[in-house]
Amino acid sequence: MSLLQIERLGIAFGGLRAVHDVSFSVEPGEIVSVIGPNGAGKTTLFNMISGVYRPGSGKVRLKGEDVTGMEPFLLAARGMSRTFQNLQIFQNMTVLENAMAGFHLQERGPVLADLLNLPSSRKRTRMAEEGARALLARVGLERAADREAGNLSYGSLKRLEIARALAMNPAVLLLDEPAAGCNAVETEEIDHLIAEVAKSGVAILLVEHDMKMVMRISNHVVVLDHGEKIAEGPPEAVSRNPAVIAAYLGTEAADADR
């Protein structure tokens, strides 16, 4: 049984089939990448898996359980975590607090205890703070802990978002273009981080534009075009697939090649 199983998932926005009949699965410790040209439906697919959109058809299974269309906060409790293409950072909080918020499911407790600052509440906060500091060290942000999150560089924010997602100790991690807008050094850092997380047994689903990164770290690649899966397999095989080349370069270019 796969950790994350996508079965014939589809959605239409007023007649436009944004995603149609897409199936694949992700195993523990595996890095699966979804690639495809702009507008291929990658982010839409992601939003369906993570519960932001309700799929029009098909199923999402997490640890064998049907979680199709379940709200994100319920998916989080079942071990699914994600990052966003266009960062979703808590700008009104410090870097440390952002990472601590990732521990919500572990640190939450009776609100009355929090209002009265009871020892149980302080203990939960302390636990989250320790965990958050360890995670910030892991992504190289420990020195920025007390800064306002809004003041961080783009690459740092990307890592902060990954740290926050890891705080939940997820079984499945969805990363939406984690390297977008990052320079070569930052991309490599994120690269290493993702590989390390996968090694610890987390199933990783990645949407990424940076082909070099995809080819380097993925175990398995799923290619979307016009909302449909056109190819799937190990990175080397996919990169040689004529249908994939045609989708990326356009059919005319592929024809001209012949």
Binding site: P72, S81, F90
Partner: peptide
């Protein structure tokens, strides 16, 4: 405060 910062991200960390 997290939901104030980003409602969508608050959901993904498990905040109801």
């Amino acid at each position: 405060r997290a939901l104030h910062g980003s409602e969508i991200a608050a959901g993904t960390v498990g905040i109801d």
